[in-house]
Simulated scan of single mutants.
Amino acid sequence: MINFELEKLKHTAGNNFFLMAGPCAIESEEMALRIAERIVNITDKLEIPYIFKGSYRKANRSKGSSFTGIGDEKALKILEKVGKTFDVPTVTDIHESAEAAMAAAYVDVLQIPAFLCRQTDLLIAAAKTNKVVNVKKGQFLSAGSMKFAVEKIVESGNNRVILTDRGNTFGYQDLIVDYRGLPEMQTFGVPVVMDCTHSLQQPNQSSGVTGGKPELIATIAKAAIAVGADGLFIETHPDPACAKSDGANMLHLDRLEELLTQLVRLRKAVI
């Protein structure tokens, strides 16, 4: 695993944004390595600090029959192999306090899902691993209220915190991004990330499968860079239509390099 310095990810003039990217869920070792290799080649070329993302298990599903994972230990070992193979940090979600120590043995960053961002025991358990903790902002919370999540982690002895915006609930089946929240959360002294794919979800569909608007991923990403986001979160897959989770709002892997190239140019123009 990589012991990377979180301070290097904070927004400073002359530095590039960092990227958390990968498939929604770990589907297989071959798929994870294939996606990671492609992204590493792109981010190395563009000098973008990179963290590989993959969920070892999906706990928040609309239907009980939806794909949840290939097995916890199997998926976590794949994440560990990705990190070692490509010498990059890795991030995965945890859902209950008992999962924190287990996942921390395999990955570098523990991610708290948006719906769980107020769960005190979960935040404290993640903090006590001394791993970097990435907290997704709840769709139901203001940016300002995320200071309490940061405080819970810091007061537990861990100041290695990232906050990620993923949109705000707008009616029952849509989300909207309030870009004022990014600089507001940066005032808490932590790196702030824009989740460019989950912020385009269309939840609570009658089919029981979450929809999305992936054609607007570039719009969300460009706006985030323009307002000074420290990092971007993008779920990507070589065949989103066949992905086992969140395919409706993932970026096709073939489109990632062009988008990141544009974003690097934009970052240089606005810093």
Rank of each mutant, 00 (worst) to 15 (best):
T12E: 15
A13P: 13
G14I: 03
N16A: 07
F17Q: 04
F18P: 01
F18R: 01
L19C: 02
L19W: 00
A21E: 10
A21H: 13
P23L: 08
C24F: 11
C24I: 05
C24K: 09
A25Y: 13
I26E: 12
E27R: 10
E27T: 01
S28R: 08
S28E: 07
S28Y: 13
E30P: 11
E30I: 12
E30D: 15
M31H: 14
M31W: 10
A32C: 10
A32V: 12
L33K: 10
I35S: 11
A36R: 04
E37R: 14
E37S: 10
R38V: 03
I39D: 06
I39P: 03
I39R: 03
I39Q: 07
I39E: 08
V40G: 03
I42G: 05
I42Q: 04
T43G: 07
T43E: 09
K45S: 15
K45R: 13
K45T: 10
L46I: 00
L46M: 00
E47T: 14
E47S: 15
I48W: 05
I48R: 02
P49L: 00
P49H: 03
P49K: 00
P49Q: 02
P49T: 00
Y50T: 00
F52K: 00
F52N: 01
G54K: 11
S55N: 04
S55K: 10
Y56E: 08
R57F: 15
A59M: 06
N60A: 04
N60P: 06
N60T: 06
R61S: 09
R61T: 15
S62I: 09
S62P: 02
G64I: 14
S66Q: 01
S66H: 05
S66M: 05
